[in-house]
């Protein structure tokens, strides 16, 4: 377990209406009121497609809880941008499925419960293929 609380990353999924707006607003408001530092991004999908350098610094945090969507999607959004997450140091809090209290409980809990899907092969752990486009 990390001595420091895990970093927090909140995705607002700004360009789609797939997460209950009340859940998004409730989670963001509580993060704002928590006194904790955190990263808030408008849309992880857009950042992945653009290979936004922010993904690299977000992935490098020694322990991170990500409030976004499904863990499988989050894992490959980061990997396809060339910035794979550390499966042992990442917990994804799925705002598409969790209620606001359940999401906040996990985000603000002291412990980290890694839940990225396990890699099927060593080669896939970090790789989306090399960029040749």
């Amino acid at each position: 377990m990390n001595p420091e609380p895990a970093g927090l990353l909140y995705c607002n999924c700004t360009y789609a209406q797939i997460i209950d707006p009340a859940v998004k607003a409730g989670v963001l408001r509580r993060l704002c009121d928590s006194g904790r530092s955190f990263e808030a991004v408008a849309d992880l999908c857009e950042m992945s497609a653009r290979r936004d350098p922010a993904l690299q610094r977000l992935a490098r945090q020694p322990g991170v809880k990500i409030a976004a969507c499904y863990p499988r999607a989050v894992k490959w959004l980061f990997a396809s941008a060339g910035t794979p997450l550390d499966p042992a140091q990442t917990e994804v809090v799925n705002l598409r499925e969790l209620t606001e209290p359940a999401a906040l409980e996990r985000l603000l809990a002291a412990d980290l419960q890694p839940n990225l899907p396990a890699d099927k092969s060593p080669a896939s752990a970090t790789s989306a293929p090399s960029s040749s486009s």
């Binding site: 970093g7 607002n12 700004t14 607003a25 704002c32 530092s37 955190f38 990263e39 808030a40 408008a42």
Partner: peptide, 26 residues
């Protein structure tokens, strides 16, 4: 704080909030 963050996220920006405790990306 909430109004600023909501507005910036709604316009597509990413924001690092530096508070009293906890880590942020380097």
């Amino acid at each position: 704080r909430f109004e600023i963050l909501s507005r910036l996220l709604g316009q597509g920006f990413a924001v690092t909030r530096v508070g009293e405790s906890g880590q942020t990306a380097p």
